[in-house]
């Protein structure tokens, strides 16, 4: 491989994939705790999981999958140099991210209003496993929400560069890596959704 370093697409993507591994492992620690505590408190997890808002969870799942589709289409569009299309698609993705976070805000407000939050008097009095379930829920979903925020910001910056023409059909590795990051955000949610909303 010769030529200037920054033209090494395969290298740039390899680096991104390695970074995505680290993100998976970061969440992996929380999933590990989930597995261990689910095995210890299956009944309490069941009771606690029953109090989750399935509607919000499902809606957000649909929103994230849609956003993943949009960003994947944006990558295809940039290859065809359809800049206006790329901007629309990226805008759609970021909008999905914002709606996702807004839903999350409504959902958490409702739960906190019911006295469900870490160290709340209600949870301290509840059976031990329930407190563990909700603590894990807030930490995992909170960390995921932080990633939605980072991903949304990242894609906005990518969109600015597309607008300026520094990302184009001949050099779009940044857009591709941004899209990879967004797929990761989506993927993590695909695990969070059943674990916290569906199987219990």
């Amino acid at each position: 491989m010769s030529g200037p370093l920054h033209k090494d697409y395969a290298g740039a993507k390899l680096g991104m994939w390695l970074f995505l591994f680290t993100e998976l492992l970061l969440f992996g620690g929380l999933f590990l705790l989930y597995a261990a505590y689910l095995a210890r408190y299956p009944r309490e997890f069941g009771t606690a999981g029953g109090q989750m808002h399935l509607g919000f969870g499902t809606l957000n799942t649909v929103i994230l999958i849609t956003s993943s589709l949009l960003v994947a289409m944006a990558v295809t569009a940039i290859q065809r140099n359809a800049r206006r299309m790329v901007l629309w698609l990226l805008g759609g993705t970021v909008l999905c991210a914002a709606v996702f976070l807004f839903n999350k805000y409504l959902e958490w407000s409702d739960e906190i209003g019911k006295g469900i939050y870490p160290n709340s008097p209600k949870l301290v009095a509840a059976p031990p496993g329930e407190s563990v379930f909700f603590s894990l829920y807030y930490l995992t979903v909170g960390l995921h929400g932080l990633h939605v925020l980072i991903g949304g910001t990242l894609l906005t910056l990518v969109a600015v560069r597309v607008q300026r023409g520094t990302i184009h059909a001949g050099d779009y590795v940044l857009l591709e890596n941004g899209a990879l990051y967004w797929h990761l955000v989506d993927l993590v949610w695909i695990f969070i959704f059943p674990l916290y909303y569906l199987i219990l």
Binding site: L33, Y37, E44, N119, P128, G129, V132, S135, L136, Y138
Partner: peptide, 13 residues
């Protein structure tokens, strides 16, 4: 936050 994930009194370990 007092999440209690490692606190035996709250079910943590």
């Amino acid at each position: 936050l007092g999440t209690g994930l490692f606190d035996p009194a709250r079910g943590g370990d």
